[in-house]
Simulated scan of single mutants.
Amino acid sequence: MSPQPPAQPRLHCTAEADGRITFDLVPGHRERARLALVLRPGKGRPETTRHLLDLEPHGADGHARAVLQARTVLEEGRWDAYLLSAADTDGEQPRQPGAERQRLRPGLRDLRRLVDGGLRDRPAPVAVRVPYATKDGFFAIRAWLRPAHAEAGSIDIAHGAMTVHARLHGAELTDEAAVRLRLRGSRDTLLGFRPVADGRDFAFTAAFDELVGASGGGHRVWDAFLQPAAGAPLVRIGRLLDDVADRKRVWVYPRTTVEGAAVCPYYTVDNDLAVEVASG
């Protein structure tokens, strides 16, 4: 009778509200090993950033555990998880990059403490981590790191307009605050909307005919920002503070026809709020 092949290791995780993530590798390894979190580089670029976490035996069921502390800074982007044996690491870098490392499949992901993350005030910088399964079935973490962030809540679409409710994190909202919709591809084409504020919470209404009139025809996209104070840097409006790593195809809003153009708010691949205008 032929021996059974070894079970493929899977990475379970538990995410905490403060950003701490506990990883459990099942099954564990007899030899000392490390968990490598590698920032996915842009197309055609080499890997340059990684974090190595020691995997220690945990419990009597053959698990190995590693912890990513909240204070560890993850740059904004997507981080892939790999298993590295002790023989393939030297200090903080693999001796042979890419050699003998194993990309890990996801196990159970306990993200319950992330679900209501938008209800808690976040200090600057706003750091977010959401574990997820990639399209090809591997474990990864989507990370955001921003000086400030405006978390979008409900979006109401009626009477040819959208009303967006949001909450500011990492900055102060002043009486001079303004919402800016910027035409993608142009730093100069901006439409301003006056928000109605209540503490850190605010709401604004954007009329679709204004977006259509300023788009100039064709297929255009408007990106949404908050300017918390006069002259302050623009803060991206998006939805990051929950357990959804990729919401573009999950949170879908209806299209509205205005002056022959189809207008639709949506979330980008980075979970930022934008409005698509398609005419002609």
Rank of each mutant, 00 (worst) to 15 (best):
T48E: 13
A274V: 10
F204R: 00
Q102V: 01
T48D: 09
Y267Q: 11
T256C: 11
L83P: 01
F225Q: 00
T22H: 13
Y267F: 15
E100L: 12
R200I: 01
H149T: 04
V115A: 07
A33L: 07
L273I: 13
A150K: 15
R182L: 00
R109C: 06
H219C: 11
E47I: 13
H165M: 09
D223L: 12
A81K: 08
L119W: 05
D110S: 04
E100I: 05
A152R: 11
P106W: 12
R194P: 02
D198E: 06
Q4D: 10
E100K: 12
L168N: 00
H159N: 14
D198I: 01
R255M: 04
D242A: 03
G137A: 00
P125K: 04
P254L: 06
T256Q: 14
P106I: 13
R40Y: 14
D201N: 13
D188T: 03
A261V: 01
L52H: 04
K135L: 06
P131F: 14
A229Q: 05
V235R: 11
A86D: 11
A229C: 00
D270G: 15
Y266G: 07
R65D: 06
Y267K: 15
T48A: 10
L173R: 06
L191T: 01
H29S: 04
E210W: 12
M1W: 08
V179P: 00
S154C: 04
E31N: 14
G117T: 01
R10W: 09
A261M: 06
W251S: 14
C264Y: 12
H58F: 12
A17H: 06
A7G: 01
A15Y: 11
I237C: 10
L111S: 05
V179D: 00
P57S: 11
A148Y: 12
E100V: 07
L25Y: 09
C264G: 06
L39A: 03
A99W: 09
F204W: 07
A124W: 07
R167M: 01
S215K: 15
A143H: 05
T72E: 02
G118C: 09
F193H: 12
A171K: 09
R249S: 02
A203C: 03
G42T: 15
L84I: 09
V73T: 00
T49Y: 05
D136M: 00
S279G: 08
T256N: 14
F202A: 03
A178C: 02
R95W: 10
A64S: 09
P131V: 10
T205D: 04
G117F: 05
A177Y: 03
A60N: 09
L83G: 05
H159V: 13
W251T: 05
D201M: 09
E259S: 04
D61T: 08
A127D: 01
V179I: 11
